[in-house]
C-alpha cells in the first residue's frame, strides 16, 4: 500500500473469471503522513481507505471481466461495516465477488480480512464505461503490471 498515492492493493493473488471473484493482498505501511492525523499517537488505517481498498479490488475484477475495455467508477457504497481497527504493518486479504453486471453498471460484494477474520465489508456499485482516453488506459495498464494483474486472463476469458 502507498496511501498517499491511493495505491491500496499490493498484488492480486487470485482472479477467477468463471466465478467472477478476485482476491488481493495489501500490507498497511508502518509509516504514512496520513497517520500523523489519523490519529496522533494512535495510528489507524482510515475506514474510508479500507472501503477504497475494497473498491479497487472490485474494480480490477470488473476490468478483468470487461477484458480491460471498460473502466469502473465508484458510484455507491452500501451497508459498509468497519468491524475492527486496522493498524500499521498489518497484512490484509481483500476479496470481491461480482453480484450483478448491468448495462453500464456493476455491483460487487467485497470484504477485507486480517488473519482470516472479517475486518470490513460492503456492497459497491460502479458506473462502467469505456476508458475516457488512451492515456488513462495506459496508466491503468502500468498499475496492473505493478500489482500482478494477470493480463492473460481477460484476454483468454
Amino acid at each position: 500500500m502507498h496511501l498517499e498515492y491511493f495505491k491500496l492493493i499490493d498484488r492480486i493473488v487470485d482472479l477467477n473469471l468463471d466465478e467472477k471473484a478476485i482476491r488481493a493482498e495489501a500490507t498497511v505501511p508502518q509509516t504514512s503522513t496520513i497517520f500523523e492525523g489519523h490519529f496522533p499517537g494512535h495510528p489507524l488505517m482510515p475506514g474510508v481507505l479500507l472501503i477504497e481498498s475494497m473498491a479497487q479490488t472490485s474494480g480490477w475484477l470488473v476490468i478483468a471481466l470487461t477484458r480491460f475495455e471498460r473502466m469502473p467508477f465508484l458510484a455507491a457504497v452500501k451497508d459498509a461495516k468497519l468491524r475492527a481497527f486496522v493498524e500499521p504493518g498489518q497484512m490484509l486479504s481483500i476479496s470481491a465477488n461480482l453480484v450483478h453486471e448491468g448495462s453500464g453498471f456493476a455491483v460487487a460484494s467485497a470484504a477485507v480480512k486480517r488473519d482470516g477474520k472479517l475486518v470490513c465489508n460492503a456492497d459497491i456499485t460502479f458506473r462502467v464505461m469505456p476508458f475516457p482516453d488512451p492515456t488513462f488506459r495506459a496508466s491503468m495498464e502500468r498499475i496492473a503490471a505493478e500489482i500482478s494483474f494477470p493480463m492473460k486472463a481477460p484476454a483468454d476469458g
Binding site: A76, H100, G102, F105, V107, T125, R127
Partner: peptide
C-alpha cells in the same frame, strides 16, 4: 442504477 439493478433481478 439501483432501480435497474432491482428490475434486472
Amino acid at each position: 442504477l439501483d432501480i435497474a439493478f432491482a428490475i434486472d433481478k
